[in-house]
Design a protein around this nucleic acid. Structure first.
Length: 203
DNA sequence: GCGACAG
DNA sequence: ATCTTGTCGC
């Protein structure tokens, strides 16, 4: 995986997320991909895919569980995005291979991980209370990501690079796609879409 | 051995 | 992740 910026002009941003029911005997993983236009953030397309989970949820192995369904959903989009935002970690992972890094490499797409909670690492220091404040996330002396205060009084987002994007650029894109919610639009809309796919509703 | 642990 | 509506507050 490439940790430096290697992305072209960004016109389309895709957001992906997965939803699953713990009671489903088929243990299906429902993935959704949304395609947004930059800079309007207008919704261009949505697609979903449901596949049986290859394995149960195991911290550290999320990529193997969710990547297949996510890749199928992305393949069903009418166009390939220029940038991918994923609900999960990028390299802020024990072996630097979280879901976002996993997907970025397999698809060779610039990718960013936007997780809602921490898997590994520790903040370099206290995080400011003001929206936009951020602090680096360290693991064994290595910078693996950042905590970003996207909204006042909301738990910070864990941003980490996936593939072909630097951490500075990743933070820039996350902040650029934030609106009035805790999660950036690509991930927020993908989350809602994935829930619809799970319920069998039309996108 | 004891905790921690994305979704 | 999911079980789940309304409600309190900015």
């Amino acid at each position: 995986m490439i940790r430096a910026d290697a992305l072209g002009p960004v016109r389309r941003i895709a957001g992906v997320d997965v939803s699953a029911s713990r009671f489903d005997p088929a243990r299906r993983v429902h993935a959704a991909a949304v395609l947004l236009e930059w800079p309007s953030l207008a919704l261009l397309a949505r697609a979903g895919a449901s596949l049986p989970a290859p394995l149960p949820y195991i911290p550290g192995l999320l990529g193997f569980r969710e990547a297949p369904a996510v890749m199928e959903a992305l393949a069903r989009l009418p166009e390939r995005p220029d940038l991918l935002m994923v609900d999960g970690q990028g390299i802020a992972h024990p072996r630097r291979c979280g879901l976002a890094a996993h997907l970025g490499v397999l698809l060779d797409l610039p990718s960013i991980g936007v997780a809602k909670s921490r898997l590994i690492g520790a903040p370099e220091g206290p995080l400011g209370a003001a929206p936009g404040a951020w602090v680096r996330l360290l693991d064994g002396g290595e910078v693996v990501g950042a905590l970003l205060r996207s909204r006042a009084r909301a738990n910070p987002l864990l941003v980490s690079i996936g593939h072909s994007v630097s951490l500075e650029t990743a933070l820039g894109w996350v902040r650029a796609t934030l609106r009035r919610h805790r999660l950036p639009e690509p991930t927020r809309l993908a989350h809602a879409a994935a829930a619809m796919v799970r319920r069998g509703e039309a996108l």
